[in-house]
């Protein structure tokens, strides 16, 4: 069995579960906090037969936006956490000053976690993009506020860019290149 595929599958379970759980939590928070009336409808002809309905567009917009924002916040915070951890690990191998600083702050054990790999951050990044695309689709169907889609797109783009730059540094460590000064 491919080790890469196995690791990829293992890394996917938590973000996939968190994606759904955060969406449900956001929906529950919106319904409870704003005291919204909803009802459930079963549609056997669809893939997922259960659908949540509100009786007016305002309630739908509020509930959808709140759940989307909660989902985005959860996924982006987790992705940024792992991204920062990964970047610190790579920079510590590349830049001695970072290594010394991490050592002084007693963060080396945290950074040196064996599961702190590019594959894990890449997986979280994929799910951050899924979050962003789902929110954009909701905005297009006028079910969510547009600013949430804009922020999620910007965060996803930025995190992807940082991940790519960090991976380039890691590649540079393994395969040194003459133009090393441009990477940091």
């Amino acid at each position: 069995m491919s080790k890469l595929l196995r690791k990829f599958l293992q890394n996917m379970i938590l973000p996939a579960a968190l994606l759904v759980v955060s969406k449900v939590a956001g929906l529950y928070f919106a319904i409870t906090f704003f005291n919204l009336d909803f009802f459930l409808e079963t549609r056997p002809e669809q893939v997922y037969s259960l659908q949540i309905y509100f009786t007016n567009q305002t309630d739908t917009l509020l509930a959808s936006s709140t759940s989307n924002f909660t989902m985005f916040l959860t996924m982006s915070l987790m992705t940024i956490y792992f991204l920062v951890k990964y970047r610190l690990l790579i920079l510590s191998a590349y830049n001695p000053r970072v290594l010394v600083k991490l050592n002084n702050l007693n963060l080396m054990p945290w950074v040196n976690d064996k599961r702190n790999t590019f594959l894990r951050v890449f997986t979280w990044n994929i799910f951050l993009w899924i979050t962003s695309i789902v929110i954009i689709a909701d905005v297009i169907s006028q079910n969510s506020f547009s600013w949430i889609a804009i922020i999620s797109f910007l965060v996803a783009t930025t995190s992807t860019w940082v991940l790519v730059r960090t991976f380039e540094i890691e590649g540079e460590i393994i395969y040194p290149h003459s133009e090393i000064s441009n990477l940091c």
Binding site: K23, V47, N68, T131, N143
Partner: peptide, 10 residues
């Protein structure tokens, strides 16, 4: 799942 959890106006 996430797409289906998005509420709709009836």
């Amino acid at each position: 799942a996430v797409n289906n959890l998005s509420p709709r106006t009836f």
